[in-house]
Amino acid sequence: MQSPRAKPRLLTLILLTSLAVMSLNMFLPSLSHIATDFGAPYSVVSLSIGGYLGVSAVLQLVMGPVSDMIGRRPLILGGLALFTLASVGCALAGNVWIFLGFRMLQAGVVSGMVLSRAVIRDVAEPAEATRLLAVVGSAMALAPLLAPMLGGALGEVFGWRSNFWVFALSGAAMFVLSWIDLAETNLKRQNSFRAQFRTYPDLLRSGPFWAYCACLIFSIGGFYAYLAGAPQVGEKAFGLSPSSLGLMMGATAVGFMAGNLVATRIGARVGTMALIVSGRWASLIGTAGAMGLLAIGLFHPAVLFGGAVVLGFGNGLTLPGANVGVMSVAPHLAGSASGLSGALTVAAGAVLTPLVSAMVGGPMGVYVLLGAMAAMSLAGVFAAYVIRNHERRLQPV
């Protein structure tokens, strides 16, 4: 048996995060087939996305504090068990409502993503944690790119239910791996919910916590805006086919992975704060620069998607350090901070996505889209400087 402070293998944490990310979008190519199979409106079946995000946001709020109280390991194992059983339920569902009910329960897998960050913060010093989160972040870039390709192939060959059988098998495999490899890393647990929430206001009253949250929200918000508007803009403004659009949207993951790679290689040398600020400026310059190039006549889809790649690169620089920072404000509440910041980010995305989607339908859609991405990036720059000023005040004179 592992010692209580034994570090899990990094691969375990990467796979936990990847499964949580893939569960969101792997089956999307089969969404219309699900609607046809159940004889249900597409709008009802699409609740498998919106409802899932809503449940995930609530769970992220709860899982962090509970993991600070009872530990990371029980929640991760419980979330994987629930995800596995719910995936079987989705695969066997006989009508759309049963399917949606089990789909909501699948959100238990979010424990793997939320608490993997807290586990890293438990076992590593901030500089090392930033490097590890950058590596795990690469999985968050690659998984959404590969998942729809895999899900589409499975749906075409074996039918849409095969996606959920793969989820079930993956969840069971991750349960076994986590049982073997993931020891408890939270050694400073709270005694009760009452004790937990007596200290929780310390987090909520922390200005640095909200500054880090704002940095995360605006960084990821730019990417949410892009995901919401790029399909419409790509088709209407540039006449891209679905296959071309999918290829160009997928290429943006390369930017994020490149940013993570740079953060991994030079983070210890230049410092976390420099990466956060540089990442926000890179995203702003990329999106604003793309707007400028379109305005002077370089009206080509490569300009839009090039700006998105640079935005992804900036996020790859910023997010590892910002995630560590939000959990380092109150280390005894690392799980709570991870859960709350994740929930706020998902909630902001849920609000931003329909707004951008509704605004980019007109003739100026490409400018509206890049403007929204640039606005998010600019707000992220301000948040980064607030964080930097706070960190400088804490440094000894």
Results as ranks from 00 to 15, higher is better:
residue 280 R to G: 03
residue 263 A to W: 00
residue 43 S to T: 14
residue 307 G to E: 06
residue 34 I to H: 02
residue 284 L to Y: 04
residue 34 I to C: 04
residue 323 N to M: 15
residue 175 F to D: 06
residue 268 A to Y: 07
residue 211 A to P: 00
residue 354 P to A: 10
residue 294 L to K: 05
residue 289 G to S: 10
residue 231 P to L: 09
residue 117 R to Y: 08
residue 82 L to V: 15
residue 192 S to L: 10
residue 339 G to Q: 00
residue 92 L to K: 03
residue 35 A to D: 00
residue 247 L to M: 14
residue 220 I to R: 00
residue 319 L to T: 13
residue 310 V to P: 07
residue 13 L to H: 06
residue 375 A to K: 07
residue 284 L to F: 14
residue 281 W to Y: 10
residue 28 L to T: 12
residue 367 Y to R: 09
residue 145 L to G: 02
residue 119 V to P: 02
residue 349 G to D: 08
residue 352 L to R: 03
residue 41 P to N: 02
residue 212 Y to G: 04
residue 184 E to M: 12
residue 13 L to D: 04
residue 257 M to D: 03
residue 83 F to G: 08
residue 356 V to C: 13
residue 256 F to L: 15
residue 65 P to R: 00
residue 343 A to L: 04
residue 324 V to S: 11
residue 116 S to M: 11
residue 216 L to F: 06
residue 388 R to T: 00
residue 56 S to R: 09
residue 169 L to W: 10
residue 38 F to D: 06
residue 285 I to P: 03
residue 148 P to Y: 03
residue 363 P to F: 07
residue 66 V to R: 00
residue 165 W to S: 06
residue 103 R to Y: 08
residue 49 I to T: 13
residue 51 G to M: 06
residue 260 N to M: 07
residue 252 T to G: 02
residue 105 L to V: 12
residue 198 R to H: 14
residue 79 G to W: 00
residue 384 A to Q: 02
residue 103 R to G: 03
residue 231 P to R: 05
residue 198 R to M: 14
residue 239 G to A: 07
residue 255 G to T: 05
residue 18 S to R: 03
residue 202 D to L: 15
residue 68 D to H: 05
residue 114 V to F: 03
residue 177 L to D: 11
residue 327 M to S: 11
residue 259 G to D: 06
residue 380 G to L: 12
residue 272 T to G: 11
residue 392 R to Y: 04
residue 134 A to H: 01
residue 151 G to Y: 00
residue 294 L to T: 07
residue 43 S to V: 12
residue 207 G to S: 11
residue 198 R to K: 14
residue 352 L to N: 04
residue 251 A to D: 01
residue 311 L to E: 02
residue 119 V to Y: 01
residue 165 W to E: 10
residue 167 F to M: 13
residue 192 S to T: 12
residue 189 R to A: 13
residue 132 L to R: 13
residue 286 G to T: 10
residue 363 P to G: 13
residue 167 F to Q: 04
residue 181 D to G: 09
residue 322 A to D: 06
residue 276 I to Y: 02
residue 17 T to Q: 09
residue 114 V to T: 15
residue 116 S to C: 13
residue 95 N to V: 01
residue 238 F to T: 08
residue 315 N to P: 06
residue 124 A to S: 14
residue 8 P to K: 02
residue 11 L to Q: 10
residue 58 V to T: 08
residue 222 G to M: 01
residue 150 L to Q: 02
residue 230 A to H: 07
residue 350 A to I: 14
residue 256 F to N: 11
residue 92 L to G: 05
residue 68 D to L: 03
residue 261 L to P: 01
residue 155 G to P: 01
residue 235 E to L: 12
residue 38 F to T: 11
residue 225 A to T: 08
residue 164 F to D: 02
